[in-house]
């Protein structure tokens, strides 16, 4: 019979909230920078200049093809052998960003390629440059279709930020481990952390649904 005791929360609730806050901070930068870079890599991938296309493909394959945990260690500890000492927070943001950029790039590329070729042709036939056509015609439509996939990616970033705990940032997962250690409770702190992750991701997924609904009506 399992007896769960959440009395430790009286003492540690603020620690958990702080942890959740750090998770949100990490995720926020990961999402923001990852989205911006993702657009850049997606545009490179659909570019007609093969060096750009090639560079973006290589980047995406390497980042997708290696575990983020390994990347985090490389960024935070590995790079010190080149004299690059990053704060734990910086390392965390970089690791999240390069990952979300790679995945986001594929989401954007698929979204752009899913738009009827006729849209690009109609825009070009009016005399718009390819860049203008992408910006005013293709991307706004692609973005609407991509919202579910983007939301998915945001949620993954929040969850993956737990991996950053290995470099010692007091985000949610790290907090849970610390509280585990000081309370000798194996389960409860993890459940508390899981609950907070869920609150964050669930809120986000509702938010994305709401946004989708709004965009559909306009």
């Amino acid at each position: 019979m399992m007896d769960l005791d959440f009395a430790f929360l009286d003492k540690y609730w603020l620690t958990f909230l702080k942890g959740a806050w750090h998770t949100l901070e990490l995720s926020f930068f990961g999402v923001l920078l990852g989205t911006v870079l993702g657009v850049v890599f997606a545009l490179m991938r659909i570019s007609r200049l093969w060096p750009l296309k090639f560079a973006a493909s290589v980047y995406i394959e390497i980042i997708r093809g290696t575990p983020m945990l390994v990347q985090v260690f490389i960024i935070h500890y590995g790079l010190t052998s080149f004299g690059i000492n990053l704060t734990a927070f910086m390392s965390g943001v970089i690791a999240l960003t390069i990952n979300s950029a790679a995945y986001m790039a594929e989401v954007f590329r698929a979204g752009i390629e899913a738009i009827d070729k006729g849209q690009m042709e109609a825009a070009r036939s009016l005399g718009m440059t390819r860049g203008m056509a992408l910006r005013h015609i293709v991307l706004p439509q692609a973005f609407r279709n991509m919202l579910p996939a983007i939301g998915n990616e945001f949620i993954i970033i929040i969850k993956d930020s737990s991996l950053i705990s290995v470099v010692g940032i007091s985000e949610l997962m790290y907090t849970a481990r610390t509280v585990q250690g000081s309370t000798y409770l194996p389960m409860e702190p993890l459940l508390a952390a899981a609950a907070l992750y869920f609150v964050m991701t669930f809120t986000l997924s509702r938010l994305m649904l709401w946004l989708e609904g709004r965009l559909r009506h306009s």
């Binding site: 006729g118 849209q119 042709e121 109609a122 825009a123 070009r124 036939s125 718009m128 440059t129 439509q141």
Partner: peptide, 20 residues
């Protein structure tokens, strides 16, 4: 090309209006 295309309007079989 972009300048030349401004002088040549085109109408497509499937309209290709911008739906957004």
């Amino acid at each position: 090309l972009d300048l030349l295309r401004q002088r040549m309007g085109m109408v497509f079989q499937h309209f290709h209006l911008f739906p957004h």
